[in-house]
Design a binder for these strands. Structure first.
Lengths: 214, 214
DNA sequence: GCTGCATATTGACCGATGGTCAAAAACGTG
DNA sequence: CACGTTTTTGACCATCGGTCAATATGCAGC
């Protein structure tokens, strides 16, 4: 009666997560997940309809909490829109690092299922954060901090570039190039929203915390 | 002695292309490709090391010509930078439509190998067009048509947004939302490069040709 | 403790896949 | 024709994601 079902469910997700840290997705079989979770393969399909569904659930579990905190962020109108935007950016960065960095540094970059993982992660992150960031931008516009006619577009553009560039496996770049793109994005956002050059610079300090050279 | 080898090689690519127009990638087996090409499965592996390699070769073949013409575009300084930019944008749009549209409308959106195809295509398109667009932008800056400090970043941002949004399977949107994002991107580019509002509007007419409503 | 039903769990099993390989065919050359 | 080389073949393999009938477990009410 103690929700045993959810316990096993989480155990399966734990197993997949553990395996993902060691090897590439396409090398992880359902049997392996089952073995790591300490159950039979058949049981996997009692909790999940497919291998794909396990992945989806894991992506969702990993980002549920940070995204909910981002959600509440939108409502805290006492914090300045700029600061909240920076916090969203940081959330992107952290989650990118958590889920993608380790494996890709070591393993081969582009495998069929690896791409699938990235897509799931990006789709989830952008579609979840877009409404939040959009609202913050709208508040910024109302408050007079920003001037732009397409808040949702602005939010989506910024998020897509951030997520895609922070990943760095879709369009591999040297750290310097990535840096340049991010700086260019900031500059574009500044000019596009009618802010003086340098006013959004603080976004950069959030965006890069483990890299050298400015 | 007539390069028979290349003939068969192309035949395999033809077969994959033909199958891709009918069904989703994950439903296409190597045997099926072989059958369509009129050869035995074993022969496939005489020309390609893996199924993945066939895909890569096909992506490359499909975009080699349009990208080379884009390359020559960069050198035609007699055409205005704006016009050439618009032509690049159109190239993006056309190739997106050619390779991705048909299947995704009918089949389920996100399958593991489908994501792989998209990634390959996006990576190839953006990385190929980035240097071309960068040079055009630099010429525009030198010519006084544009003002911006990070031409490469500008090129990459525009290309990524275009490719990602034109695909519309990574972050599914209604036609209206896509429209809004593109319009927002244009607006952002105008303001960011010191151009008056509406001056880049003509990019839109290239970008949308099969959709209704503005 | 026993009975009966629902919920969980199992692992043998299935069809299909990507990929291999020894053998055979086709080719070019002397 | 005879030969070495390059192509071509399809049976074969290991493995995968997924199914399912059988089985175990948990838990009512008696």
């Amino acid at each position: 009666m103690f929700m045993k079902k959810n316990v096993k469910y989480e155990k399966i997700l734990d197993a997949l997560q553990e395996l993902l840290e060691k090897e590439s997705l396409q090398n992880i079989s359902v049997s392996e997940i089952a073995q790591t979770a300490g159950i039979a393969k058949g049981s996997i399909y009692y909790y999940f309809p497919s291998k794909e569904a396990i992945l989806e659930a894991l992506v969702e579990r990993n980002y549920k909490t940070p995204l909910e905190t981002a959600q509440t962020l939108a409502e805290q109108t006492d914090i300045s829109p700029f600061t909240r935007m920076a916090m969203i950016f940081q959330a992107c960065r952290n989650s990118s690092a958590a889920f993608l960095s380790q494996k890709q540094l070591s393993s081969q970059l582009n495998a069929p299922e690896e791409a699938f993982l990235r897509q799931k992660y990006m789709t989830y992150l952008v579609s979840s954060l877009k409404p939040v960031l959009t609202e913050i931008i709208q508040q910024g516009i109302a408050h007079g901090d920003l001037r732009f006619d397409h808040p949702a577009a602005l939010a989506e553009i910024a998020l897509i570039i951030l997520v895609v560039k922070l990943d760095n496996s879709l369009f591999p770049c040297s750290p310097g190039e990535t840096e340049d793109t991010i700086v260019g994005l900031i500059s574009l956002l500044e000019k596009g929203t009618g802010n003086p050059s340098g006013s959004l610079n603080f976004l950069t300090s959030y965006t890069q915390s483990s890299d050298r050279a400015v």
